[in-house]
Amino acid sequence: MPATTSPEPALHAIRLEKRDHIAFITLARPQEGNPVDARLIAELADACEAIEPDPEVRVVLVSAGDAPHFCLGWDWRWLQADEGLDWGSLSRAFEPLAQLPRPVVCAVAGQCLSAGLELALACDVRICAEDARFALPETGLGLIPLAGGTQRLARAVGRSWASYLVLTGQEIGAREALGMGLVSSVVARGELMTRAEELCRSIARRGPIAVRYAKEAVQRGCEMPLEQALRYETDLTIILQTTHDRAEGVRAFLEKRPPHFTGT
């Protein structure tokens, strides 16, 4: 698939590029620390809306490219200046990303703080560079995390670690994040984007319907009692039996060749 850049929507806080079955969402204001403000939230929603109907996109990669830091968090000046701000809406700031049916990989380098960490938590898989630093410092400001941090962090690393990080605001490094399960791998800074793209290509080579259903099974199943979640997994498995991709996967295995999945 040739590289394309979505002409719509017009984006400034982020960049959207589609290449080789991967949609690249890149935070694009590194000189400001990639602040989370109304523009970034709106553009992220627009980017997700542009990705959703595109059958060529099989996986999404969120990063800050080669910027020194992934995201320093909220634009506090915006939050303080916007007298009409719906604070309740901030909890849904990253829902368009979290609800994408395709897998979303996040590559983090440098500081990933406050809303930056909440953005990363809205992704399915996180990898980071050795210099990555993570924190939710809001309690030190008399607040709690505003965009799902308390809930998604607990689901990612468990109640105990989430409580520790939220209550203390403690900043942790890459190896600590790996140990608690916040990230799946730690790589050298210069290798981060290469490794992230390799991971995305690996996912994109797999059956796209199966990958979407697998994400759905994990995501929704975690919110269900185990017995109900197992039934849900079975239901998705039964649906997959009717797809062309499932038949192609079996044929390719028997013929000892790579499968050619079409997403049908």
Rank of each mutant, 00 (worst) to 15 (best):
C48V: 07
E49C: 15
A50Q: 12
P53W: 15
P53S: 14
P53L: 15
D54W: 10
D54K: 12
P55K: 10
E56C: 12
V57S: 04
R58C: 06
V59Q: 01
S63G: 10
A64T: 09
G65D: 09
P68I: 14
P68L: 13
P68N: 14
H69G: 09
L72F: 11
G73K: 01
W74V: 04
D75Y: 05
W76Q: 15
R77N: 14
W78V: 09
L79M: 10
L79R: 07
L79F: 08
D82F: 08
D82I: 09
D82H: 10
D82V: 09
E83C: 14
G84N: 11
L85Q: 05
D86I: 06
G88S: 07
S89Q: 12
L90F: 08
S91V: 12
R92F: 14
E95N: 13
P96A: 12
P96M: 12
A98C: 12
A98M: 10
Q99D: 15
L100P: 01
L100F: 05
P101T: 06
P101N: 07
P101K: 05
V104A: 04
V105H: 01
C106Y: 02
A107M: 07
A109T: 13
G110S: 07
G110W: 02
Q111A: 13
C112F: 00
S114N: 06
A115N: 01
G116E: 01
V125K: 09
V125A: 11
R126H: 12
C128W: 00
D131M: 11
D131N: 15
D131T: 12
F134V: 02
L136V: 02
I144M: 14
I144Q: 15
I144H: 15
L146V: 06
A147I: 05
A147T: 02
L153H: 02
